[in-house]
């Protein structure tokens, strides 16, 4: 059985730590990686008429920027690892969408970084790590 690991990646230090951990893991078990970035988005948010008009263009720009600034450097850094790497770039709620990416790519594990100290906002609204732990369809590893 080949192992596929989804890494939630946003370019932060903790995400880099998660990527490094997943790389080692994949190397040991002979698996492959899915570097996934989620652009936080709710279809139930509110937009002004101007924002609606520009939304399609903005979306294109956001996807391009994320691809160039976040995913491409990550893939680059994995060149020497010899691992098979794919990427995923989606809009949505970060935790749910990572779960969906794991499902559609047939991955059997998700690795994410823990984002710093738990602040007030994560106490109130819950962090990605906590919601993923509650909702993910596959085992989740949280890298400190």
């Amino acid at each position: 059985m080949s192992h596929k690991i989804v890494v939630g990646y946003d370019g932060s230090d903790s995400a880099k730590a998660a990527l490094a951990f997943a790389t080692t893991l994949a190397g040991e078990v002979g698996g492959s990686l899915v570097v996934a970035h989620v652009l936080e988005w709710s279809p139930y948010s509110f937009l002004t008429p101007n924002e609606i008009e520009e939304r399609h263009r903005r979306r294109g720009e956001e996807l391009q920027r994320a691809e160039a600034a976040i995913l491409a450097p990550a893939v680059d850094s994995l060149k020497d690892s010899g691992l098979e790497v794919e990427t995923a770039l989606k809009y949505g709620n970060t935790a749910t969408t990572l779960g969906e990416i794991a499902k559609t790519t047939g991955a059997d594990q998700i690795v994410i970084g823990r984002n710093g100290e738990p602040g007030l906002s994560s106490r109130v609204f819950g962090s990605v790590a906590i919601s993923l732990a509650q909702s993910a369809p596959v085992p989740v590893t949280i890298v400190p």
Binding site: L39, W41, P43, Y44, S45, F46, L47, T48, P49, I52, R55, H56, R59, E62, L63, K90, Y91, G92, E100
Partner: peptide, 25 residues
């Protein structure tokens, strides 16, 4: 509610957003 929205179109203006903006006018 988004029942007929293709997940691949996420990030585009949703029906809900269109309705909410038109309503606030």
């Amino acid at each position: 509610k988004g029942d007929y929205s293709d997940p691949n179109d996420a990030g585009e203006v949703s029906h809900f957003q269109a309705l909410a903006t038109a309503l606030s006018g």
